[in-house]
Amino acid sequence: MDPIILSTQNLNFYYGSFQALYNISINIPEHHIVALIGPSGCGKSTLLKVFNRMSDLVSGNRVEGHVFFKNQDIFAAQTDIMSLRKRIGMVFQQPNPFPLSVRENIEYGPKVHGETNKERLEQIVHESLQSVMLWDRLKDSLKKRATELLPDEQQRICIARLLAVDPEILLMDEPCSSLDPIAIVGIEDLMQKLKEKYTIVIVTHNMQQAARVSDLAGFMLLGKLIEYGATAQIFAAPQDKRTEDYVSGHYG
């Protein structure tokens, strides 16, 4: 078994008086793709946001329990949130490249973290676009506004933008929900490739997608992690009746 890179212990999360997560304990091993599945409102996106503390942006948020990233509690007082988010990047549901050029989008992360060397930035742009398989298509139009690209290109730019800061974990919040089927296949292939270097946690309510791409899957319902294990087992032989009902399409 690969070492655990990210884990939670008895994690409870509240929005004001509403409890969104109940007692979640989960271990995420390195270089795996972990899918979080479950019906809308089950807390899977919330859990994802807790992992890089984007949950801090929600007013009235409150956390109990622990989240460990490489044995460091990310909610400890001495945590540097900026560098945490650099190491645990996030891809959003809607592609959200900045309204800047392709090059500026990729350079953005390294620049905010202090990279000023022109040649190094050039190299980062090249490598990042290469990793998301956009380099050949865009190498002559790096000045084009990223917001004018096709939706799946935009999503790839967002992934490239993350890779540029050399993260360790990629959090993906329904990264394919606004893409067409062909583009989805492309992004899923990309995830398989990225798995060699990164750990990926993906939230999806497309069960086929979870079954196709992930190594481990966690089923969530009403803020609780009902079942977590190898994807094949979750889909073929779920232990919990609720998981079985969900993966066989009885609700959700």
């Binding site: 890089n52 900026m82 945490l84 988010r85 990047g89 959003f92 900045f98 992360g109 905010v112 800061v165």
Partner: peptide, 21 residues
């Protein structure tokens, strides 16, 4: 809001987000 989220999620500070995005 998604522009701001994208920037903060890359580890930019709020001021960097304002200035650069």
């Amino acid at each position: 809001r998604t522009y701001r989220e994208g920037s903060l999620a890359l580890g930019a500070t709020p001021w960097q987000t304002v200035k650069m995005v």
